[in-house]
Design a protein around this nucleic acid. Structure first.
Lengths: 187, 187
DNA sequence: TACGGTGATGACAGCGACTGACATCACGGT
DNA sequence: ACCGTGATGTCAGTCGCTGTCATCACCGTA
């Protein structure tokens, strides 16, 4: 693999997921990833902030979709409805990547450090959704709570999805979690 | 400070918070903390797993209180009520430490790495509360969602507390967030 | 008092994550 | 053929973190 092969970032992301899944996150060095991708360690750190970030380069897409979903929710939808519409829209970012999502979820579940990063991304998603809600005129505290609740439902739905056989879509699971949440709060 | 002065852990925790607040987390080395506490770097890592953990040694107390609060909630309380009672009970762990909590919150807010750790602790709190709810006979999915929601309310309440002048107690803010959450879900 | 066991600490070497500085390379335009 | 530009390689260095072993203070016991 030459020095100027295209898609260095994609090669590194794939190499990292493979290695993390094969031998574990801690047993993989950044140099291992760089070698498999045909670059040097220094180049890795030009694309990814640290050893973990390579697993989270799709987070931005998810966030962008969710914000769009909130903005385009019906005008008469309440805060929780709008936030729910956002995270359901975000599901499009992962819809056709069930296998990869499953592998990745297994890697993350096996390492607390990676869980930390995932939680930070989810928190950022919540912040973005909350901002989108305020854009709709929702008051700040209600926006924060509705966003947090919707993101919690997304997480629960995501976990159910990767634990399933993939027969139903991620969005189905997330919608079910949102419905559960409403039932809970009412009870 | 001699080699065998008592309360090495407490000294290190105080030194770390001071240094993180004075010059920032990244500008502080573990050796700086160890020196101010009168120990060596190696001793630091015998008490704390890493450079961040020194700010989170109270998390266990919070978790234990919350679990007790859930277990002792009225038998006829719903899942969200019981989870809410848990996080309200957890407030006792911080009730008389407003100043320290404020300083610590500022340090954490200034560093994404510390936010990650805080999120992990909150997730662990949610897991523990969910387990306590299942102990009460709540079904697994409902327990997870109720716990997540209650922890979200705790976080919102905590943020309001440290942003306030400390006139009202942390538990007041958390109770208000829980009430907001109910109103939201109903709307 | 002398002695030995025990737990905490210090000293040291080493790996790996991450960064800054500078050289080098491929490519496109002139 | 030349040059500017951006991506990459090379190198040195700091810091987080760990394993290993020696050392120290304390405590019980003879």
């Amino acid at each position: 693999m030459g020095r100027w092969e295209p898609d260095a970032q994609g090669r590194m992301a794939r190499a990292a997921l493979e290695l993390y899944a094969e031998r574990g996150y801690e047993q993989t060095t950044v140099q291992d990833i760089a070698e498999r991708a045909g670059v040097t360690e220094r180049t890795y750190f030009r694309y990814f902030a640290d050893k973990r970030e390579v697993l989270f380069d799709g987070a931005h897409t998810l966030e962008r979709l969710a914000v769009a979903g909130v903005a385009e929710a019906p005008a008469d939808a309440g805060p929780l409805d709008a936030a729910g519409a956002g995270v359901v829209r975000g599901c499009d970012a992962l819809a056709d990547r069930y296998e990869r999502a499953r592998t990745r979820a297994g890697v993350v579940a096996a390492n607390p450090g990676l869980q930390e990063r995932e939680l930070l991304k989810m928190a950022a998603l919540g912040t973005a959704v909350a901002a989108a809600l305020r854009e709709r005129g929702v008051a700040a505290p209600a926006a924060a709570l509705a966003a947090e609740a919707a993101v919690a439902a997304f997480r629960v739905g995501f976990e159910a999805w990767v634990a399933s056989d993939g027969g139903r879509g991620l969005d189905d699971h997330v919608r079910a979690a949102l419905a559960d949440l409403r039932a809970l709060a009412a009870g």
